[in-house]
Design a protein around this nucleic acid. Structure first.
Lengths: 185, 185
DNA sequence: GATCGCATGTAAGCTGTTACATGATTTA
DNA sequence: TAAATCATGTAACAGCTTACATGCGATC
């Protein structure tokens, strides 16, 4: 269960709430991992049962109490073991949008171009977001926490996200041309 | 349930067994979709219950009978509806290997470089496979079935897979350099 | 006045993985 | 002789999504 290690990885930087974790996850991992709040909260509870994290509630007014999670020594050890473990196969991603394009041969040309254009717009919009926001975000976290060394890999993953999106955008542009030229209706 | 549509998409080209479908899926979608046989077989059974496919058993000796699935008119219509439906958000992939690299700041330099090198080897090996095999595979299917128009998108997806892997390889090489230069232990 | 952000969760259900079971033939 | 290929599946479990529930304060 990889979400456990994702959460543990962030808690290793400092105590946070489930809500905070969701924010960090969305803002920093460039889509390398994703989870919803309704998966995060129960996972934190399981981690607590296993003794890998502890929680501490801070009362608030007008809002639910903030429930901070802190990584324990066992959690830290478990996380380091996971980190150290070798990787031995490629990730297999699933991409519903590309799956649809894979099968799009039986759709009218106009509709294929429309699907491609929608994906292109989405990718461009996301790239613009990534380029302006994530870098500042990382700099902010480093300024606040002093985690300079970690920032090397965060920055690397950020670059990977940007380069991947650029590759996809180039591919979408080229594929639109190919489709325009390659068949009739 | 997207596996349903994936299977239907292939069955739309012609009757096949579950085992065949697994082969096509692995060989042609460039990791755009993935499924195990133990997910494919029950999914085909569900599709049959829903009347979107029909099956026909061909006896064999020494091996289990081959069970061919054929798409029905309802299945074809359902598939076309799905294909035609607009897409409105980006896919979110999860990549365990990259997640580990994201957190690798607390690992010794040597170990980070090792993880990067393993991933680089895997990506290069897969790229080599894709470059030689998938193109021939597509040409073979077109020769056998005459699905020329479909081949435009298959070929496009194949190029996307190759370009994505090249981008990742370039990133891994650059990141190894950055890590070598950026910190001490 | 409606939606967004903050902040926590639960419950039901669907999706997907891993391990198991069978067994002949072919390849390394 | 061991492993891979062909060919079908089942059962138990883990992972994940969607819908629901609550409620204040701030912004549009």
């Amino acid at each position: 269960m990889s979400l456990k290690y994702t959460l543990l990885g962030f808690l290793n930087y400092g105590p946070m709430t489930g809500y905070d974790l969701k924010g960090y996850l969305d803002a920093s991992t460039q889509g390398v991992w994703y989870a919803s709040l309704s998966q995060i909260y129960p996972t934190l509870q399981k981690l607590e049962q296993e003794g890998w994290v502890e929680s501490q509630e801070i009362p608030q007014e007008g809002k639910p109490d903030r429930k901070y999670y802190l990584i324990t020594a066992e959690g830290r050890a478990g996380f380091q073991d996971w980190l150290d473990e070798g990787v031995h196969e490629l990730a297999r991603h699933k991409n519903l949008n590309m799956l649809k394009l894979f099968f799009a041969g039986s759709l009218p040309k106009k509709r294929v171009l429309h699907h491609l254009q929608v994906e292109l717009d989405l990718q461009r919009k996301q790239l613009a977001k990534d380029e302006q926001s994530t870098k500042q975000y990382i700099e902010g976290v480093v300024a606040a926490t002093g985690l300079k060394r970690e920032a090397v890999m965060w920055e690397a993953i950020r670059r990977l996200g940007i380069e991947s999106k650029k590759t996809t955008i180039r591919w979408l542009e080229e594929t639109m041309k190919t489709v325009e030229e390659s068949y009739d209706d």
